[in-house]
Nucleic acid binder design. Structure first.
Length: 656
RNA sequence: GCCCAGGUAGCUCAGGGGUAGAGCAACGCACUCGUAAUGCGUAGGUCGCGGGUUCAAUUCCCGCCUUGGGCUCCA
């Protein structure tokens, strides 16, 4: 088919196309269609991402990356990061630039500014203006392969780039370095003006004019290579999209997420607060937050009772000897509150409940007939989180785990984990989560206890359980806790964000340390295996996630107030009070707001408070024993009998 | 802990070297109203805390506390 002057390339749909020899990926895109050529940002040639300007070879399989695909946006963002670096280098002579990858929804670039200078918000504006100038200048991104020696010369005034080059070529690079430059004896660089060249593996868009729908978002500190002891760099975050509309949509999504911020909603809805007098990372629950929390906890207790768990309570403090035995003082001391001295002993607030549950197990001799023994506690723990990491309810210092420790035999392990997966998903579904992702964390040989055999057995049990369920999972190598492998379960919330909530962890360390034993059928002593598991994880954190998931509009069964009764005028207050009393008698959380203000205002207030049902009673309702029902997110219905509303509310509560 | 940005009335925020302002909320009065903000009035602040510069600091400078965004860490 092809002679010396044409080449043949294969397209993703299986078809082939002839092109003149020396044709580039862009030529290919143009030959397919002008719209494709316009949207093209890079190409995938035989599985590798390449610039559009790269010549194609005969027989290559080629697909064009367009700017509205994830991969295409990635290229777009990476190129925009380069423009950011170029702008900073031109505005801040002497600035050292380090790395600047594309990330979810955007990109960042880290800089080391001369004299430890930092960026201000004004700087960000100037940088953005300079970036727009560069985009308008339509500078081509031109790729060059250069030898390591030449690259080192080229970047002689850029120590961070030299470090990356050296690490890559010495083979000690990790993934992020390889991502910057590629690997081998030569490195690739991209030049897009006489004054700016950056080390990069590519690919990039053909020219800066292909960019433009971007915004710089914020400036933050970041350590070089993420190392706390390394230099603190200035990181500029930005976002970039293929079109103005996509950029605006993204900014809109951010604004929407901000409206759902659980800290904002917690104040607006009077749910809880973090008084500074109390200390960082410690919350107090106001009545409306407390009722929701109680409902969550009651539900959890009910499900655990149904699931064969036994409830226990343990104290908040323990003698240091307990945490020495459990190993927390060896492995977890940095995460613990400082000790207090009393009665010639040293006591610590507990960072976990497991050691105390082990004491309960150990308190008397156990038989195999008791296993699996499932101990459950809503146990409040205290962890010393570093000040800069605290974040509303999502990261706090005092929190309550829906914590359980299951003691079982090796043979029971797989079954137990299998039923746990059901249990977890069933409980989470009750809270409106439908999408789950599973992660299996395996052993880190440098930070683990226990024999290889038992790690393998436990990991296998976790795998088997997930396979039985047919759930897909990702493996995170080396991500396990020191005491055993685990399954972490992420959920997607109503606006698609991912939260890690539940965890199921195998532990063969604590049974060892506490010398836990049971008597088997063979009348001999055996060591049980222990499972740690939490569904909410932390009740506080789960509450925060729920608040954002529902955007404050709790379903009827969880809403602090389920129905509010509003008399149209003071003349209707008696009837309104009767309606409210009837609802309360049926166990519904109901209140009444008297006619001191106009009806419209009171309805508005109820809506702002996200109350599921607003009931209006006026003359007609007094006469007919009815209410006007104004449901959240629905239409007003007049003349509904109180009894039928009660049935409706009952159904709404049951249904969720 | 480190980098950046904040801290002004209960909340959201404006202001700015000459001892402070709005909207909402609160309170009072009038209005009694059928589905998302009635009107008028009153009260409310050591402008985060401490120090410095100045005739004068809420404003400028320094330190601390605290909140938020990141880094690191993590439920």
């Amino acid at each position: 088919m092809s002679d010396s002057s044409t080449i043949e390339v294969r397209l993703p749909d299986g078809s082939s196309r002839s092109l003149p020899e020396g044709a580039t990926a862009l030529d290919l895109a143009k030959s397919i269609g002008s719209r494709l050529a316009k949207a093209a940002v890079a190409a995938v040639v035989n599985g590798d991402e390449r610039d559009l300007g790269s010549p194609l070879s005969n027989g290559a399989t080629v697909s064009i990356l367009t700017n509205d695909s994830d991969e295409g946006r990635h290229v777009l963002r990476h190129s925009t990061a380069h423009v950011l670096a170029q702008a900073v280098v031109s505005l801040f002579p002497g600035a050292k630039f380090t790395i600047g990858p594309a990330i979810e929804d955007g990109f960042y670039y880290d800089f080391d500014l001369p004299g430890g200078r930092t960026f201000s918000d004004d700087d960000l504006q100037r940088i953005e203006e300079e970036m727009r100038r560069i985009v308008t200048a339509d500078q081509p991104f031109v790729r060059h392969e250069v030898s390591v020696a030449d690259a080192l010369k080229m970047f002689s005034d850029q120590p961070y780039k030299c470090e990356i080059i050296e690490r890559v070529t010495s083979g000690s690079a990790d993934g992020s370095d390889a991502g910057e430059v590629g690997s081998g004896n030569s490195v690739s660089v991209y030049r897009n003006s006489d004054s700016f060249v950056d080390l990069c593996r590519g690919p990039h868009v053909p020219s800066t004019s292909r960019l433009g729908h971007f915004a710089l978002m914020k400036v933050a500190g970041a350590y070089w290579r993420g190392n706390e002891k390394g230099p603190m760099l200035q990181r500029v975050y930005g976002t970039a999209w293929e079109s103005k509309a996509a950029l605006e949509e993204h900014l809109h999504r951010l604004a929407e997420a901000e409206k759902r911020d659980h800290r904002r909603l917690a104040v607006e809805m009077d749910l809880l607060s973090f008084p500074s007098e109390l200390g960082g990372g410690l919350a107090v629950w106001h009545p409306k937050g407390a009722i929701v929390r109680k409902l969550m906890e009651d539900y959890s207790r009910q499900r655990h009772a149904d699931g064969g768990y036994q409830f226990v309570y343990t104290p908040h403090l323990a003698n240091e000897k307990l945490f020495a035995t459990s190993g927390h003082l060896d492995f977890y001391k940095d995460g613990m509150y400082p000790p207090m001295e009393m009665d010639n002993g040293t006591y610590y607030p507990k960072p976990m409940n497991c050691p105390m549950h082990c004491l309960i197990f150990k308190e008397r001799q156990r038989s195999y007939r008791e296993l699996p023994l499932r101990l459950f506690e809503l146990g409040t723990v205290y962890r010393y989180e570093r000040a800069g990491t605290l974040h509303g309810l999502l990261r706090i210092r005092g929190f309550t785990q829906d914590d359980s420790h299951i003691y079982c035999t090796e043979e029971q392990l797989t079954d137990e984990i299998t039923s746990l997966l059901d249990f977890v998903m069933s409980v989470l579904r009750k809270f409106g989560f439908e999408e789950f992702e599973f992660n299996l964390s395996t052993r880190d040989p440098d930070k683990s206890v226990g024999s290889t055999e038992i790690w393998e057995k436990a990991t296998e049990a976790l795998r088997t359980a997930m396979d039985r369920h047919g759930v897909a999972y990702k493996v995170k190598e080396g991500d396990a806790a020191f005491y055993g492998p685990k399954i972490d379960i992420d959920v997607r919330d109503a606006i698609g964000r991912k939260w890690q909530l539940s965890t199921i962890q195998c532990d063969f360390n604590l049974p060892e340390r506490f010398q836990l034993e049971y008597i088997g059928t063979d009348n001999a002593r055996h060591r049980p295996i222990m499972l740690h598991r939490a569904l909410f994880g932390s009740v506080e954190r789960f509450f925060g996630v729920l608040l954002e998931h529902y955007g404050g509009s709790f379903p009827a069964w969880l809403a602090p107030i389920q129905a509010r009764v509003l008399p149209v005028t003071t003349a209707h207050e008696d009837h309104a009070a009767q309606v409210a009393a009837r609802l309360r008698a049926r166990g519904f959380r109901t209140d009444l707001v008297a006619a001191d203000e106009q009806l419209g205002k009171r309805i508005r207030n109820a809506k702002v408070e996200r109350i599921p049902y607003v009931l209006v009673v006026g003359d007609e309702d007094v006469a007919a024993d009815t209410v006007g029902v104004n449901p959240r997110g629905g239409d007003v219905r007049r003349g509904v009998t109180v009894d039928s509303f009660i049935a409706e509310l009952e159904a709404a509560v049951e249904g969720t």
